[in-house]
Write a protein that binds this DNA or RNA. Structure first.
Length: 531
RNA sequence: GCGCUCUUAGCUCAGCUGGAUAGAGCAAUGCCCUUCUAAGGCAUAGGCCUCAGGUUCGAAUCCUGAAGGGCGCACCA
């Protein structure tokens, strides 16, 4: 819709025109301050220019009115245009808001270590990434969701040790000393039992079998992670294992050429010359590659796989890591602008007013699965998608356990359910409703129709700006418009019943499409859960 | 100390690439169910957009500086 208007204006003025949504609908559907920018070149006052421009739009099919107000140029879309567009959308619901962007994108997100279940911080990145993924798919991008599994390095050894310690304490009843970085949590108990069953009880005390144990356990942990993500409607296309990459190290090392050098018996990457604070070690004195080496091979592989754009979602605590990876990408002779790193900030939970500080290694992490169980996948997804991902978020758990209007997901679902109910109550058939016209509606209905048809713009904007919260914001506003309209006008029995029902169907389509892009299924009925 | 980032209503946050009177949701107060589910609607109140400069027709938005918060500054991942 906006594209259409924008294209039309571009053609008319021979330049890109800024289109904005007026604060007040009485100004029209779209507006542009173009007269202000033209006033300098034309040496005329913005008001006069706007007046002249407005009068040049007489014969348009798309607009019913073009007015100049205080230098702004306000456009009102014609009934015809809106009605045709809405009818098309209802006839092609799966196509509503779709585009064909085609670009091939690799989206890597979550990528939590396979050493324990996901916690609430991971959930945020997961929801953010999956929402972007759904938006991108809707826009026609060829996008792949990938999980990078860090199954090499110290943390894996630590996992083996942790299981042994846990087993010695709980199964063998020994008095064990816990190192500080030892993993804790209920999941270990399950792993211990599984390990004993598979390997026999001896494995708990045999130091030489720690690695074997760990390699088995990380797969089990991945199963837990994948299941937890599935409960949130999040699914990955591909998994890349860090451990599988190091075979390729020599080749990648050679590929970086002068980007890597030897000093003090170690290999360094000259990342300082490419914007990093200093050079970094990639291979230690004892020949063991560092974590960065794995990431370099990984990114090389990503680029070799032929994507046009790469998006990584990382925890904000890794932001200092970005320059060195970008440096590596440049040494590998790829365009580091094609690597986009988005940050997902900390989440802090409040519980009964007490700040609940999370630490990944500590025993008292808040598990994602616990929260999903408490407030449900829909609410969790909604909350995390509603906030800009790169700012710290604080929320009180108790507040989102409520099943009332303070929980916006219920508000939106209720709007959708209301429409469904009223459609069922009406004597008109779906065919009769779809065949009716959307013209001659009152101003409020017209405005609601326009709001509902705005979804495609929101989808595009939310994805291209990577600000997924624009979608839930829009859905909240649309639901509010619906609720208000519902309160103000009686539909059943009105003269315009069929028309208004058609209007409601457009609203429902927007709500349903929008929700599904957030991984949430729209509800047709609300059932109140008793406490 | 250095780098990144944030600071908008009592609370949690929106405010797009500068543009028309600063916006929601909670919380507060008052109203609306013989009316398609009140899980709803309406209204009131609440703001020196952290501070100081600058850029210009115009700044919450861009630039510089200050103060305060967060994160990072590994041969750990």
């Amino acid at each position: 819709m906006k594209q259409r208007v924008s294209a039309l204006l571009r053609e008319k003025f021979g330049r890109e025109v800024v289109l904005e949504k007026p604060k007040d609908r009485s100004f029209g559907h779209f507006a542009t301050p173009i007269a202000f920018s033209l006033s300098k070149e034309l040496r005329k006052s913005p008001m006069i220019i706007a007046d002249e421009l407005a009068s040049s739009f007489d014969d348009s099919e798309v607009f019913s009115a073009v007015e100049a107000v205080k230098g702004y140029l306000n456009f009102r879309l014609s009934e015809n245009f809106l009605s045709e567009y809405a009818t098309w959308a209802l006839d092609n619901p799966a196509e509503f808001g779709k585009q064909e962007k085609k670009e091939k994108i690799l989206l890597e997100f979550v990528s939590a270590n396979p050493t324990g279940p996901l916690h609430i911080g991971h959930a945020r990145g997961a929801v953010y990434g999956d929402t972007l993924l759904r938006l991108a798919r809707h826009l026609g991008y060829d996008i792949t969701a990938e999980y990078y599994v860090n199954d090499a390095g110290n943390q894996i050894d630590l996992l083996g040790l942790s299981i042994q310690l846990e087993g010695r304490a709980t199964v063998l009843g020994e008095d064990v000393e816990y190192p500080e970085s030892y993993y804790r949590g209920e999941y270990l108990t399950g792993l211990v039992l599984g390990a004993v069953e598979k390997f026999g009880i001896d494995i708990l005390n045999n130091q030489s079998r720690q690695k074997e144990l760990a390699l088995w356990a990380k797969d089990k942990v991945m199963e837990i992670i994948v299941k937890d993500l599935g409960d949130l409607n999040i699914f990955f296309d591909t998994f890349v294992y860090e451990s599988s990459l190091y075979d390729d190290w020599d080749r990648v090392l050679a590929k970086m050429g002068n980007g890597v050098y030897e000093k003090d018996g170690k290999m360094w990457i000259a990342s300082e010359t490419h914007g990093d604070e200093k050079d970094r070690v990639v291979v230690r004195e004892d020949n063991r590659p560092t974590y960065l080496a794995g990431d370099i091979v990984y990114h090389n592989q990503k680029f070799e796989r032929g994507y046009e754009h790469h998006v990584n979602i990382w925890g904000a605590d890794h932001h200092g890591y970005i320059p060195r990876v970008k440096a590596a990408v440049e040494f590998l002779d790829y365009d580091s602008n094609k690597l986009e790193v988005l940050l997902s900030q900390m989440v802090s939970l409040l519980k009964d007013g007490e700040p609940y500080k999370m630490s990944k290694r500590a025993g008292n992490v808040i598990l994602m699965s616990d929260i999903v169980e408490e407030i449900g996948s829909d609410a969790l997804r909604f909350i995390f998608a509603s906030k800009k991902s790169d700012t710290a978020l604080e929320f009180d758990l108790a507040e989102f356990k409520k099943q009332d209007s303070s929980n916006p997901i219920f508000y939106i679902q209720y709007a959708h359910a209301r429409i469904n109910t009223i459609l069922n109550k009406s004597d008109f058939s779906r065919e009769e409703i779809l065949n009716s016209s959307l013209k001659g509606l009152n101003e409020n209905a017209d405005s609601l129709l326009f709001d509902a048809l705005l979804l495609p713009e929101i989808i595009e904007d939310a994805f291209s700006s990577r600000q997924v919260q624009k979608l839930p914001d829009y859905l909240k506003a649309l639901a509010a418009s619906l609720h208000k309209f519902y309160y103000d006008f009686r539909i059943i029995g009105s003269e315009d019943e069929a028309k208004l029902l058609k209007l409601f169907m457009v609203v429902a389509l927007s709500l349903k499409t929008g929700l599904s892009l957030m991984g949430i299924k729209a509800k047709d009925h609300m059932s109140k859960e008793e406490e």
